[in-house]
Computed example of a mutant assay.
Amino acid sequence: MADPAPDLPPLREVIARHGLSASKALGQNFLFDEQLLDRIAAIPGDLQDRAVLEIGPGPGGLTRALLRAGARVTAIEMDSRCLPALAELGEAYPGQLRVMQGDALKMNHAELMGEPFAVLSNLPYNVGTALFVRWLGGEAWPPEWTSLTLMFQQEVAQRIVASPGSSAYGRLAVLAQWRGAAKLAMKVHRSAFTPPPKVMSAIVHVTPADMPGGVSARVLERVTEAAFGQRRKMLRQSLKGMPGAVDALDTLGIDPQRRAETLSVDEFVSLARALSC
């Protein structure tokens, strides 16, 4: 039977005691609702004794929920103001929390974790998309992460799970869905945060799938960047800067007069495969 959770002071009290406030420059918005945080921590399934990476824990709201769920958490935090509050949390859960100060974009997460890990984060808005694209990129597959459970602005979350033909469908959807399964797991009202952001938020859950053979992730990134960079133009125009791309459309039977948002993920993968050869 698991040990009972330690009796911790309310997070608002911890923040007040340490004189913390959300930094707009760091894209911070704090969550205090423990029931909501427990629901977020439950999205990837049982976390008992699982390795979890959390980016931008702030004062530790989601971190508390992950620790309550039995996870072994590595938290990367850039804001030195939050370190004392996180240190107190580590003392309350001996051996379960490791805090690293620094920029998550500059760290090798697989090396840092050293074992398969789940990612759960209320991502700072200013680095969320860059981290997401990085986790989905790279030629090595399957990745070291077993799932990504990430808070985004709702607009970004909808772009990740969008279907072809919709206005939200774009590069993020293709990169998320070509070798993974992405779903919108939960919407979070702006009033749940302190301070409330100007937009609604949502949580996306991604699990890795098999990677289609003969495809370079870098080529797919370049193709989608070019195609959606000029999404109102026909493919023959948006892809003309990529050697061989327009000829590949003809070979694959893809009408060059179509626009990027009409292509399925499989069609983008086929195009990238043709250009990877």
Rank of each mutant, 00 (worst) to 15 (best):
E225F: 10
S216Q: 14
L220H: 07
G229T: 12
Q257V: 09
G241N: 11
P208C: 01
T224V: 10
G244T: 11
E267Q: 12
A209V: 03
E225G: 08
D247F: 05
H205D: 12
L271R: 01
T207N: 06
A227H: 05
I254H: 09
F228Y: 04
D255Q: 08
A209Y: 05
V269K: 05
L220G: 03
G229W: 12
A274V: 09
L235P: 00
G213K: 15
P243C: 08
A202E: 10
P243H: 07
V206R: 00
K240L: 07
I203C: 05
Q237E: 11
P256F: 09
K240C: 08
E261V: 13
Q257R: 13
V219D: 08
M200E: 07
R259P: 05
T262A: 15
R218M: 14
D266S: 13
V269I: 10
V223G: 00
S264H: 12
Q257P: 00
S264A: 13
S270D: 06
E261G: 02
T262D: 13
A226H: 03
M200N: 05
A272D: 00
V215E: 02
S264D: 05
I203D: 00
R222V: 07
L271C: 02
H205I: 04
G229H: 08
P256S: 13
E261A: 10
R232K: 15
V204S: 05
L271P: 00
Q230Y: 14
V265G: 02
I254K: 09
S201R: 02
L220T: 13
A248D: 02
V223M: 09
P212R: 04
K240S: 11
